[in-house]
Design a protein around this nucleic acid. Structure first.
Lengths: 341, 341
DNA sequence: CTGTTAGCGCCTTCAA
DNA sequence: TTGAAGGCGCTAACAG
């Protein structure tokens, strides 16, 4: 039978309360007593029952999520995932507060971080804009002892506790490999469409993509990166202009959001001139485009996984528990029309 | 504050025990009382705290896993995943019993199923061999009221409670799409290497692969399927023979296991004659082959996810709780050299 | 058929 | 610095 605190107590010859103090590293225990308890814990192989502990504590974890108020499917999916997490809030003893933040706005994000910290939540998760002022605000949060996790896009040069998102360099490389091999022919131009170079995930995807293209498919020519601000309207304009100008574009990598605009623009490109297209995030739009053949592959990050991972990590940090890095790695899903879920 | 059984009891004007009886659908409650309680539950929006319930029950779930005693990396991975699950056994209140079963042996599997059922575990998970005698044994397990889950490979024509594995038809289609596009040229032969057509996962992959190849890449010629019994030695022999005989094989789809043999055989194929290769399961071998360029893509199912899913489902079934189908879907991971974890 | 009572494993006052 | 006692939300004897 699994040993309990009672077993530890009797084995160490102390009371339950003392065992509890030692287990939770609370003060008011003599060194000798502490040692006795530690020894008993070790000898009996005691592992505390987290469920029972939480039950007794009745503790809930107020968590704050800062999400860009960007109206694209991915962010909507993220919100949906948060709503679902809320539904399980009771069972998991968490209380999620969702705060909207203007997109790509470092100053606003920094402010929001400080405001969130003022509430003293058990943890904060946020989609980072990679700017110094955000880094400063993040450091303050950490300094205040509040666990901090970046979500979807990471922050450079800070000691955030964890990053819940995909490896964006790997995503960029994968896109390049697929696109290069799908394109087939050795000649032609390749367009790259990003949201903003201000966010680290886009920058990383872009750089990795470019480097693999240069190495493995040197005869394909990369066009200058277009920034669509993850906004369908802007994206549509940019892509339409692109295809009305040039006529030897063989492939396009859309590494940001706003693919509604991309698909619209692609629809009016004559079928015989349509490029190989690789995009990010599986949404209604990209799913439809995959099925109709307008898009060839979609790289996806599962917002639900990211949210759940962020929550697990924040709870663990709040409890001072270690996180199993391996279990928290967010996969890059690759979807073709053939393996749509 | 979340309502508890106490709130329900006082709201309905009954005792705790009665509330408990109603909640757990135990007999010995008058229809009127039951209604009163149900009404209170509904009105207060009561959700029972599963953690507390389990604590009180002190219940553990003895689960039996039947795993083919096949010595390939995937099955070893599955065993590893089970070991890890065992480590968390205490916390999750499960006790896993692992039973080895001869591979591809329907009679032995049927017997093992009956034996396992005789122990009256809280649930059974098994890698199915798709044969009538197995179906019969499975029906008996179900009839005995023991939750039953197929793992990795499914069973036709039975009412197993759940299948914890990937969509193998989707995997076959995906392999065909990638292989066809990677192969580039329109001419050449394509080899298919399976483990055994006795298991449904291999059959499904094979059929789906063939049908997409026929539809989308009709000029590539499919060779007859080779059966390597998931055994590296057999696989090596088959592939070596294949390449010594024919000289216009442009691609190969390995849909089973035993890829150690495949890679060995490929290594001795002259570089300029090496085919596009798509294989299943990310192992040390396939990872190395991806990196060295011998294999172009690997489709993977995460054994850890499958085991954890099977456990969750079996527990839920044992408790008569519903399963969130969506959350239990096992993804097909696609790995290129660029997105190796 | 219904209620009382004593735990499950842990944490937390309150006293000593 | 230590211990005793009560309780978290739920279940399970055992009585009525």
């Amino acid at each position: 039978m699994k040993p309990t605190v009672h077993d530890i107590a009797s084995h160490a010859g102390v009371s339950l309360a003392t065992v509890d103090r030692v287990l939770n590293r609370r003060p008011g225990v003599s060194a000798r007593t502490r040692e006795k308890v530690d020894k008993a814990v070790h000898e009996l192989g005691f592992v505390r029952d987290v469920a029972a502990a939480n039950l007794a504590k009745g503790r809930t974890y107020p968590l704050t999520f800062l999400i860009p108020s960007n109206d694209n499917s991915f962010m909507r999916g993220l919100r949906l995932a948060l709503d679902e997490a809320r539904d399980r809030a009771g069972v998991e003893r968490i209380a999620i507060r969702l705060v909207d933040v203007p997109a790509f706005d470092a100053a606003a994000l920094a402010r929001a971080l400080k405001d969130a910290a003022a509430d003293q939540p058990a943890g904060i998760a946020f989609v980072a804009v990679d700017a110094p002022e955000v880094a400063v605000a993040a450091s303050e949060v950490i300094a205040a002892g509040i666990p901090l996790v970046t979500l979807v896009s990471d922050l450079s040069g800070t000691e955030r506790d964890h990053y819940a998102g995909i490896d964006n360099a790997a995503a960029g490389r994968t896109a390049a490999s697929l696109l290069g091999r799908f394109a087939g022919g050795p000649q032609g131009k390749v367009a790259v469409l990003a949201g903003s170079m201000l966010v680290r995930d886009h920058r990383e995807r872009c750089e990795a993509f470019a480097s693999v293209m240069a190495r493995d498919f040197p005869t394909l020519e990369l066009l200058p990166v277009l920034e669509g601000r993850d906004d369908p309207a802007v994206v549509e304009r940019l892509v339409a202009a692109l295809f009305s100008g040039l006529d030897d574009i063989v492939a396009l990598y859309s590494l940001g959001a706003g693919n509604r605009g991309l698909v619209k623009a692609l629809e009016s490109v004559p079928a015989e001139r349509r490029p190989v297209v690789i995009a990010h995030e599986l949404t209604e739009t990209t799913r439809g485009a995959l099925q109709s053949g307008l898009i060839d592959a979609v790289l996806n990050q599962d917002a639900g996984h990211e949210v759940r991972s962020a929550i697990r990590v924040l709870k663990a940090k709040a409890d001072g528990l270690p996180v199993v890095a391996d279990q928290e790695r967010i996969r890059i899903d690759i979807f073709l029309k053939d393996n749509l879920p």
